[in-house]
């Protein structure tokens, strides 16, 4: 890599490919993707359906492993781990937020947020503290904590899901179309929440196909047909105002998009 980052990147992927064995035909979902994301970045991955963005997200989230290429998450090479090791990495290093929230509907808000800690060895009283801290961080009123999650509005549910993604203090928060099931106003408030979490230092990668949403991040990675066709940093409000212009990126350019305050 050209300029060595001063800190370990959260994501450092090189030449990722993913081939699915379909019925008779092979599907090349990723054809050589290289990407580096530094701690504290707020990145959107965009692309039309079939571009490989879901596949990339699964690999970045350690739900799947690449066919070839290497991927280091928070400094740990995870490109060839088995299912158990991947589960361990997800448990400690990744927080997921889904489009459909994926809360347990009959469980209370608190129980939903506590759930990731079932699989880590966190002491009981510490769990409650952490869950409370996460729920406060997403701005969910305390009186709602004992409500069943299916009694909440969509925006509240997504806040619960975000709180759940934070309780194990992950290095990376991966959000898959987090505003896809929300109306614009609620989506805005969720994006504000992501913005403020990022401002506190969280590394966030979100997958979206809405330019408005992507524009509220600091960097946009555009995928098409299994390649990264664009990797652009958005430095300031001025650029954001005019939208993330298509900024061509050299083939081998996997420079981490400088710091959020860097130049484009």
């Amino acid at each position: 890599m050209g300029s060595a980052a001063p800190v370990t990147p959260v994501i450092e992927a090189r030449d990722l490919t993913k081939v699915y064995d379909g019925a008779g035909a092979e599907t090349h979902a990723l054809r050589g993707v290289s990407l580096a994301i530094a701690p504290g970045e707020f990145t959107a991955i965009m692309g039309p359906s079939g571009s490989g963005k879901s596949t990339l997200m699964h690999i970045l989230g350690c739900l799947d492993i690449p066919t070839t290429g290497t991927y280091a998450l928070a400094g740990q090479d995870v490109s060839a781990l088995d299912d158990y090791e991947l589960a361990e990495v997800r448990r400690t290093t990744v927080g997921f937020v889904f489009q459909a929230f994926n809360l347990l509907p009959r469980s209370t808000v608190l129980r939903n947020v506590l759930m990731p800690m079932l699989y880590t060895r966190v002491a009981r009283d510490e769990r409650d503290e952490r869950a409370a801290a996460a729920l406060r961080a997403v701005g969910l009123e305390e009186k709602l904590w004992t409500h069943r999650s299916n009694e909440l509005s969509g925006g509240q549910m997504q806040r619960v899901a975000i709180a759940r993604s934070l309780v194990n203090d992950p290095s990376l928060v991966l959000a898959d179309e987090p505003t896809g099931n929300l109306d614009t106003a609620t989506g805005d408030s969720v994006m504000e929440l992501f913005g403020s979490l990022n401002a506190e230092g969280r590394t966030i990668v979100l997958i979206t196909h809405e330019p408005d949403i992507a524009a509220r991040t600091h960097r946009i990675v555009r995928l098409q047909d299994g390649f990264i066709v664009e990797d652009a940093a958005i430095a300031d409000a001025h650029v954001r105002q005019y939208g993330a212009g298509a900024i061509p990126v050299a083939d081998d350019a996997l420079h981490p998009a400088a710091a959020p305050d860097g130049d484009v």
Binding site: G61, L63, D83, Y84, A87, E88, R90, R91, T92, G95, F96, F98, N102, L104, M115, P116, L118, Y119, T120, R164, N168
Partner: peptide, 16 residues
């Protein structure tokens, strides 16, 4: 099924 997927995504391994 979705609950199982979720639990796995947040770090439950097969034995859990």
């Amino acid at each position: 099924t979705r609950e199982i997927g979720l639990r796995k995504a947040i770090g439950a391994d097969s034995s859990a």
